[in-house]
């Protein structure tokens, strides 16, 4: 995204990202007994990420994140599985959950927490990681940037790097295609 940036848009996005993520946290925490939960919270965060990528540009975002978002998703999955496995330690079946009701916590008062929340956090991370990866790949590949991490690129990304608007000379492209067809025909 190389066009001129709007200062107003950027400042608004900063505010919006903050608000959306607070709302996502709210959805995540209330998910056990009320509408909400890890998936929907993850989608809310994903929306904030889309906004951020519009304001900063995807490349800049990737630089800020520093690691492949798929790892975030994998971490989330691991969190969820480990939460499911914990009951096995005390001889209960897989995915059994426990709830605690805490009284008189400073600042919060009555708090109801349980292992389902941990599971939801796992789901949240999976959704954020996956959608983040999707945003990166979609946005970058349509802009002609390198969409994938280094190891993935070697094999299967080369065609994805062409920008969608790129004005590939028609004749040249056709020659290329014919060449490929020939190799397939024999």
């Amino acid at each position: 995204m190389n066009g001129p940036r709007s200062y107003i848009f950027n400042s608004m996005v900063r505010l919006a990202v903050f608000l959306v993520n607070v709302f996502a946290l709210y959805l995540l925490l209330r998910g056990h007994n009320a509408p909400g939960g890890g998936f929907i919270a993850g989608l809310a965060t994903a929306i904030s990420l889309i906004l951020l990528s519009l304001a900063l540009g995807v490349q800049e975002m990737h630089r800020l994140l520093r690691f492949d978002p798929v790892l975030l998703a994998a971490g989330g999955l691991l969190t969820a599985i480990v939460t499911g496995l914990l009951p096995l330690l005390v001889g209960k079946p897989f995915l059994e959950h426990f709830n605690f009701h805490l009284h008189d916590v400073p600042l919060l008062g009555e708090v109801h927490v349980g292992t389902p929340l941990l599971f939801d956090v796992g789901v949240y991370l999976v959704v954020v990681g996956v959608t983040c990866k999707m945003i990166f790949v979609f946005a970058k590949s349509t802009q002609g940037l390198r969409a994938l991490v280094a190891e993935e690129e070697r094999r299967y990304s080369s065609p994805v790097e062409q920008p969608i608007e790129a004005d590939v000379p028609r004749a040249e492209a056709e020659v290329g295609n014919q060449g490929k067809e020939k190799t397939h025909a024999d």
Binding site: L78, I81, L85
Partner: peptide, 13 residues
């Protein structure tokens, strides 16, 4: 079910 899933995650990490 769990063993291959954990293996997949491990390999991914």
């Amino acid at each position: 079910i769990l063993l291959p899933l954990l293996t997949a995650l491990l390999a991914l990490f």
